[in-house]
Structure formats: structure tokens, C-alpha cells
Design a protein around this nucleic acid. Sequence first.
DNA 1: GTCTATACAATGATAGAC
DNA 2: GTCTATCATTGTATAGAC
Lengths: 207, 207
Amino acid sequence: MKKTTRIQVENRERVLDAALHVFSLHGFRGSTVEQIATASGMSKANVLYYFRRKQDIYVAVLEETLKLWLDPLESLNPDGDPLEELWHYAQAKLRMSRNAPSASKLFANEILSGAPMIKSYLENELRELVQTKCTIIQRWIDQGLLTPINPLHLIFFIWSTTQHYADFMPQISALLEEGQGKGDEDKLFADAETTLKQLLIKGLSPA
Amino acid sequence: MKKTTRIQVENRERVLDAALHVFSLHGFRGSTVEQIATASGMSKANVLYYFRRKQDIYVAVLEETLKLWLDPLESLNPDGDPLEELWHYAQAKLRMSRNAPSASKLFANEILSGAPMIKSYLENELRELVQTKCTIIQRWIDQGLLTPINPLHLIFFIWSTTQHYADFMPQISALLEEGQGKGDEDKLFADAETTLKQLLIKGLSPA
DNA sequence: GTCTATACAATGATAGAC
DNA sequence: GTCTATCATTGTATAGAC
């Protein structure tokens, strides 16, 4: 019978923190155990004691991050005001892009390379969740509370616009001028929020 | 004096084609010369005869793709109808996501890893181009032809929503139901186009 | 239980054969 | 000019020391 010691919990946590950072930058294949070891302040061999293979670290990080990242969609309330519910969801996603950009980049990398590890998750759990939410959105439309629109593509719209502010931040930074949010993250995300809100609310209001 | 032979031109082209495919999936660090060699039907050593280093292949592919990918923005015509111009641009980008997804994914990977190779391009050429276009958009707004909106974030909006259909295709496929475009690329992109047009036109029309 | 020395596999790059 | 045999390096993973 194996016992889980405190040092074990701590060190696994250190590895996972470092791994999230490394994997989010270079994806699974582009990252090395050595990099994770350096980032966590441990020896490469020691890292591989706590996780036998590089892939085990990757899967652990993915699973840890998955729930957090896709959680807000759950909270879409069928009984709330449609425009408000959708905007709250988009807002929550945008804030996650700011506060947990590595999580977004981790998934972006995984999906760019064909989603080999989370394919079954996407096709099952996530798909069911998204279907449920599409049904809710469709009902809103049928009730005349929302302009007719394809619910699934509306969700893609929210995902893409919000995650952009995590995944493409180096490009965004390069394009910003002084006074436009350069070096001022608060302003940058405030502007993003305003713009998205405008397009979403105006674009979705019923005729 | 070096002479450029026909076999040289052909083989370099074969390498670049294969490299675009490989790099777009796994990024620079995650890709190996061996993979590029296999994909191009050449030996690894032979590939490295035509491009001395892996990095040289990568830079060549990036440069070749860069112009193509960012070109449509140039065509934004200040004298055209604002809504039509912006929609045509978004439409062009969406079609590129469909026809040249590897180009989109190549840049996504590059930017995800911090844009080490194209940083200076982003900060100079692209930045100037984007500034010019933002000025045009701002003028439209001042003339009352467009609802007041942050021009730069509007461009981010167009980029993110359209590129999503290249970069995140594995996720999109996993979420599609029968009859929603699964296995029917025409329908999928038609729906995407309709949805985007709707949000863009409705969201941007002046009050 | 914790960690390291070391084996083994691959990758990037080159010197030299054709 | 074209291409291959070979090498140094770095990567993953494990057997075994503490």
C-alpha cells in the first residue's frame, strides 16, 4: 500500500505549476522534461520520479486545467435574461484570458496539434455540455428573446474573441500604441470588454 | 559563383511544402527535421543540404506565408462602404481559414510561443499597416458611417473569429452534430459566414 | 520513500563521398 | 552540385544508491 507524503504533494504541485508554464508555450512535443525541471527548480531525474513519463505530466496538467477552463459555460442560466447571461459568460471567459492565460494557451497548443489527448473529452463531455447550452439558446430564440442565430457558432464566437486575448497576447502587445493600452493591462482589457459587449449586445438583440 | 539549378528550385519547394504542414501542427520546437524529410519524401541529410539549419527552413516558410496571410488587410478601401469593406475583409479572412488553414496555424504556433521569429515584423511592418487601417476606421466613425467602436479591437475581433475556423478545427469537428455540418465543410463554413456577417453588420451599423 | 547516475534513443548538424 | 555516413548533443526513461 502506497502512502502519500506531504513532500510528495508539494513536489507534484511544483512540477505541475512549472509544466503548465512550459507546455503552454511550446506544446507537448516542443517541451522537454529538462525545461520543466529547471522551471520547478528540481533535477530532471527527480521530476521523472514523481511522474514516470513526460506524457503523465502533460495529462495531469491538462486534467487539472480542463475543469477550470470550461466551467463558466455550465453556469449559463436558462431562466435568466438571454443577453445578460451570454454577456456574463463572455465576460467571465475574457477575465479568465487575463487571469489564467496559460490555461488557454495550453488548450490552444493541444488543439492546434490535433487534440490527440483530449479528443475523446471533446467528443463526449464537452459535446454534451455544448449541446445542452445550444438548446437553451435556441429556446431563447424561439421565444423571441434573441435574434435568430446559429447557437453553436455563437459559442465559437465567444470562445474565439475572448481566448484571443490570452493566446495572441504577444501580437496584441506588438500592435499597441502608447495610450492605447501599451503597458496598461487594465486599459487593454477594459477596451476589449467594451468592444465585445457592444458587438455582442447589439448583434444579438432581437429585431 | 553559385548557380541555381532547376532541381534546386524543385527540392526547396518540396521541403517548404512539407515544412509548412509539419510546423503548423507542432510549432518550431515540436517539429523535427526528420518529420519534414519524411513528409517531403527526402532523406533528413538531403533536406539539410538545401537548408543548412532547421531554423532556416522555418524562417523561409514563415516569410513565404506571411505576405499571403496578411495581405487582405491591405485592400481595405477608405472610399468604399464601411460595412461592406469590413465584411469583405472578414469574409476573405474566413475563406483563407478554409483554404489555407496551415498558414493560420503556423502563425498561431509562432505567436503562442512568444513570436520569437516575427516579433520585429509585428512591431514594424504589421503595426504600421494596422495603424493605417485603424485611422481609416476611425474616420468612418467620425463621419457617422459606423457605430463608435475601438478600431484596433474591431480588427482583433475579425482576426480571432475567422482564424478560429482554422486553428481550432479539431475542436469544431468534435462538437458538430449530424446535420450541423459534420462531414459537410460547405455547410459548416456557410453557417460560420452567416453568423459572422450577422454579428458584424448588426453590431457595427450606426445608430 | 526520495533522489541520482547512467543507459538508451532521437535529433540537429557536418565532413566528406560521389 | 548532389547527397550520405557519421558524430556530438540533447532527450526520455530506468536501475539502483541513499
